[in-house]
Computed example of a mutant assay.
Amino acid sequence: MISIDLIGIGTGNPDHLTRAAEKAMNMADMILLPRKGDAKSDLVDLRRAICAQLLTRDVKIVEFNMPRRTDRSDYVGAVRDWHDAIAGLWMEQIALHLPNGGRLALLVWGDPSLYDSSLRIAARLPGATVRVIPGITSIQALTAAHGICLNDLAQPVLVTTGRRLGQQGWPACADTLVVMLDGHCAFQTLLPEDFDIWWGAYLGLPQERLIHGPLAIKGDEIISCRAELRRQHGWIMDIYLLRRRGPG
């Protein structure tokens, strides 16, 4: 019997982990750390640092190479195939290192239940029981860093992706939009004069960067800053909040 703990680690800062997360890490028989290539070595380094700082007992730490998702027009199909491949790698490591069962832990950016597929991948493992240890989300980290409320008084908020914003435009049902997983700055498809933006990258980490203001003024600055940060570090994790501008 395999038990899987999906542990939310916030934005990679060890201070973002809850006491429940720290306890779950120390209860594990094995922690799996994904490697995403040399360009994103910082990502596995952050997980290694969390383990080094918070583990108080000898826990087996195993690293594996994450497969790449194919870029094809059938987006949903490509993602499902990618998840199948990742689940297969998890099962390989379990068979190799936990042949008699045990507790497996994975350190998940943000919260495993918000815009993350670890739960979907874990569901592919036959007979496994899954537990989620929630973490700080990038949405919480963004609004806290800027010192703003998520919503305007009595107004709705919609959380979406850059892909959907770019394809479908601003949704009529929202006053405020939180945009995640946007590799192409989809806010460029909007009329900039109508919106304010609060943007953040590497939230909670030493290299954190924040920009906010009218989209018409700050949009180009964000695009330039994002490109430079990605060039420097080889990877970037960012998120932003857009809000319609009021009269005047």
Rank of each mutant, 00 (worst) to 15 (best):
Ile2Gln: 00
Ser3Val: 10
Asp5Phe: 11
Ile9Thr: 08
Thr11Met: 15
His16Asn: 06
Ala20Gly: 08
Ala24Cys: 08
Met27Gln: 15
Ala28His: 05
Leu33Gly: 03
Pro34Met: 15
Arg35Met: 05
Arg35Thr: 09
Gly37Leu: 00
Cys51Gly: 05
Val62Tyr: 12
Val62Asn: 03
Met66Asn: 14
Asp71Ser: 15
Asp71Asn: 15
Ala78Phe: 08
Val79Glu: 15
Asp81Cys: 10
Gly102Thr: 14
Leu106Lys: 03
Leu107His: 04
Gly110Ala: 13
Pro112His: 09
Ser117Glu: 10
Ile121Leu: 07
Ala123Ser: 06
Val130Gln: 06
Val132Cys: 14
Thr137Val: 12
Ser138Ala: 15
Leu142Asp: 11
Ala145Phe: 02
Leu150His: 07
Val159Pro: 00
Arg164Tyr: 01
Gly169Pro: 07
Cys173Phe: 03
Thr176Gly: 08
Asp182Lys: 03
Gln188Glu: 15
Thr189Ser: 09
Pro192Glu: 09
Phe195Trp: 11
Ile197Gly: 05
Trp199Phe: 15
Gly200Phe: 05
Leu203Gln: 07
Glu208Val: 01
Arg209Asn: 13
Pro214Asp: 12
Ile217His: 01
Ser224Thr: 15
Ser224Asp: 13
Cys225Lys: 03
Arg226Ser: 07
Arg230Leu: 02
Trp235Pro: 12
Asp238Ile: 03
Asp238Leu: 03
Ile239His: 01
Arg243Gly: 11
Arg245Cys: 03
